[in-house]
Computed example of a mutant assay.
Amino acid sequence: MPVVIKRVLAWGSLAFLIYFMAFRPEAAAQMFKSIGVALVAMAQGLGDFLTGLMT
């Protein structure tokens, strides 16, 4: 992917994130909480997998 397209997508994503947090703070907070819960669940699953390998 050309560098120009990557830059445009990155700046567009940042602008959308700022807009989303400014005008829909409750929805933005809920989205970030959901992402955090998913990351914790994935880490827990990986830990359970590695523990299962070691026992």
Rank of each mutant, 00 (worst) to 15 (best):
R24A: 05
V40P: 07
L17K: 04
F23C: 10
G12L: 10
E26I: 00
V40I: 15
F23A: 07
Y19I: 08
A22N: 10
D48C: 04
A29K: 14
A38Y: 00
F23L: 15
E26W: 07
G47K: 07
A27C: 02
G52W: 04
S13Y: 04
L46V: 15
Q44S: 11
A15P: 02
G52V: 01
I35T: 09
V4E: 13
Y19V: 11
G45P: 00
A29L: 13
A41N: 06
G47P: 00
K6V: 05
F16Q: 11
A38D: 11
A38P: 01
D48M: 12
G36R: 04
V3N: 02
M21H: 08
M54V: 14
D48Q: 10
G36E: 06
L46K: 10
S13Q: 11
V4Y: 08
F16C: 12
M21T: 08
F32S: 14
A28L: 04
M21C: 12
A22D: 06
Q44I: 13
A41I: 09
M54F: 14
A15V: 14
T55E: 12
F49H: 09
M1N: 13
A41S: 14
A10W: 10
T55D: 12
G52K: 04
W11C: 07
D48E: 11
G52P: 01
S13F: 05
G47W: 09
I5P: 01
A15W: 03
A27N: 06
M31W: 04
V8S: 02
R7I: 03
P25Q: 04
L53E: 01
F49R: 10
G47C: 11
M54L: 15
I35Q: 11
F49K: 03
M42G: 08
R7Q: 10
E26S: 08
V37T: 10
T51R: 12
I5V: 15
A27Y: 09
F20V: 04
M54H: 00
L53W: 08
A27G: 05
T51G: 06
Q30V: 00
A10D: 10
L17T: 06
A38S: 09
V3E: 10
G45E: 07
L14I: 05
A29I: 05
M21K: 09
R7M: 10
L50N: 01
V40G: 11
Q30G: 01
L14C: 06
I35G: 02
I18W: 12
A28V: 02
A10F: 14
L50T: 05
G45D: 07
Q44G: 11
F32Q: 10
R24V: 02
A29Y: 07
P2N: 15
K33L: 01
Q30L: 06
S13T: 10
M42E: 14
G12Y: 02
L46T: 11
M1S: 14
V3C: 03
V37M: 08
P2E: 14
V40Y: 04
L53S: 00
G36K: 01
L9C: 08
P2Y: 08
R7Y: 03
W11I: 06
A22W: 07
F16L: 15
M31G: 01
V8C: 01
I18R: 11
A28I: 02
A10I: 01
M31T: 08
L53T: 02
M31S: 08
L9N: 13
L46D: 06
F32D: 03
V4W: 09
A10V: 02
P25T: 03
Q44L: 13
E26V: 03
V8P: 00
L9Y: 05
